[in-house]
Design a protein around this nucleic acid. Structure first.
Lengths: 225, 225
DNA sequence: TAGGATGCTGAACGTGCGTTCAGCCCCGCC
DNA sequence: GGCGGGGCTGAACGCACGTTCAGCATCCTA
C-alpha cells in the first residue's frame, strides 16, 4: 500500500500539494497538516520533509495556484476576449473549482497571499478599463486608477462576503453552480448601475469634491506646519 | 486584588464581555479565552462560569455589539440624516473602534454572525434607496431589492477585503484614522460611478438581458419537464 | 448565628496540533 | 554484490487550547 512505484500517477510531493489545495479550499486555511497528509495517502512527516513547515506548504500552494490561474486566464482571453464569454467561462470551471475555492479561502484569510491576488485583479481592471476607454465604450474618469481599484475591490469583496454562505465546509462540486447563480443574481444590478446613473444629479459628487478640497486645502490662516 | 467590591467599576461579567470584544477585534475571532480572561483580570474558569462555553461568549458579544450599533446608528440618524454627515461620523468613532473592529472580524469569520449583519445592511440600503427614489434623487431600478443588495454587499465587501491590510493584529487606536483615509480614497470613484455612467451605451446591459431571457426561457421545443 | 447561594479560583484533564527524529526500505551506482 | 542515499514512516515531544471540578471566600437570608 505504501512506497509503491516512484510515481503512483503523480509524484508524492505533487499529490501532497494538490491535496493541500483541496483541503485548504474545503476547510479553510486552518486545515490541519494531518488531514492533508491523510488525503494524499502519506504520513504527516512526509509533508514536513518536502515542504519544511506549514508555511512552506502554504507558499508552494500559493505559487502553484497563481501560476495555474494566470495560465488559464491568458489562454481563455486568447480564445475569446469578449465580455459575454464570462458566463461561458463560469459554466466551464468545473475542473478549476479547487483553484477558485483556494483563492476565495486565501482572500478570506488575508495577509500577503490575499494582497498579492487583489493587486493582480486591480491591475487587470486598470488595463481593461483603459482598453475600453480607448475604444470609446468606457467613459473617462477623474482618477482612472482609483476607479479601477474600487470596481475590482468591490466585485471581489462582494463575492468574498457572500461566499461564507457556503459556510465553514465548502462543497467544491457545488461551487461552479453556485458561482453561476451568484453571477446571474449580481450582473443585472451591476450592469444597470454601470449603464444608467444611480443619482439623478451631480449634487452629491460636487458636495464631496468641495468638502475634500476644503479638507485638503484649508484657508491659509488656519494652515499648520 | 480579587473579589473586592461587587462592582469594581463594571460587573465582572460585563468586564469579560468588553475584554472579549476588544480581543476578538484585535486578534480575530480565534482569540483565546485565556487571553480574554487575562485582559479582564479574571480566571479562564470564570469566563466559563458566566458564559458556559466559548460559543456562549461569542453569542453574548454578538448580541451586545448589535444592540450598541443599532442604538448609536438611530441616534446619529436622528441628529443629522444627511449623507455628508457620514464623514463627520467617521471622524467621531474613536469611542466605537472596538465595535467597528469586532464587526469587521465577524464579517471576516463568516457564519451566522456575519450573515445577520449583512442582511441588516442590505435592509438599510433598501430603505435608503427607496427614500431617495421617492424624493427624486435616485433613479428607479428594474429590481430595486437586487440593486440595494449589490450596493451594500460590494461596499461592505470592499471594506472587508481591504481591512486585512490591518493584518492579523488590528490596532484599534489607528482604526478611525484608517477608516477615514479609506473613505476618502473610495468616495471619489464610487460617487463618480453613481453619478456618471461608466459605460457609454447600453449594449452590454441589453446583451445580458437577452442572454438571461434565452437562458431562463429556452425555445419550447427544447423545454424539459 | 447557622446555612445556603453566589462569585470566583487553581489545578488539572483530554485533545489536537505542528514539528522532530531515529530508522526502515528500496533504488541506482560503484 | 555491497552500499550510500533519498523517499518515507511510526512514535513521540511540547505546547496551547477549551473545558471541568472541587473548594474557598463572601454575602444575603432567616
Amino acid at each position: 500500500m505504501r512506497s509503491a512505484p516512484p510515481v503512483d500517477d503523480l509524484t508524492a510531493k505533487a499529490r501532497i500539494r494538490d491535496a493541500a489545495i483541496r483541503r485548504f479550499a474545503v476547510d479553510g486555511m486552518g486545515a490541519s497538516i494531518r488531514a492533508i497528509a491523510a488525503d494524499a495517502g502519506v504520513s504527516p512527516a512526509l509533508v514536513m520533509h518536502h515542504f519544511g513547515s506549514r508555511a512552506g506548504l502554504r507558499e508552494a500552494c500559493d505559487a502553484y495556484v497563481h501560476a495555474q490561474i494566470r495560465e488559464h486566464k491568458t489562454a481563455a482571453m486568447r480564445a475569446d476576449p469578449s465580455a459575454t464569454a464570462l458566463l461561458v467561462q463560469l459554466a466551464q470551471l468545473e475542473d478549476y473549482a479547487p483553484l477558485v475555492g483556494y483563492t476565495i479561502r486565501a482572500l478570506q484569510a488575508g495577509g500577503e497571499g490575499a494582497r498579492r491576488f487583489v493587486e493582480q485583479a486591480v491591475a487587470d481592471a486598470v488595463a481593461y478599463l483603459a482598453e475600453g476607454e480607448a475604444a470609446g465604450t468606457v467613459r473617462p474618469s477623474r482618477d482612472p486608477e482609483a476607479r479601477a481599484r474600487w470596481m475590482a475591490e468591490s466585485a471581489l469583496g462582494a463575492l468574498l462576503l457572500q461566499a461564507p454562505a457556503l459556510e465553514e465546509h465548502m462543497d467544491l462540486a457545488e461551487l461552479p453552480r453556485w458561482l453561476r447563480a451568484y453571477a446571474m443574481r449580481v450582473l443585472l444590478p451591476a450592469l444597470e448601475l454601470y449603464t444608467e446613473p444611480l443619482l439623478t444629479d451631480a449634487s452629491m459628487l460636487d458636495a464631496f469634491l468641495r468638502a475634500r478640497d476644503a479638507y485638503e486645502d484649508p484657508g491659509p490662516e488656519e494652515r499648520g506646519p
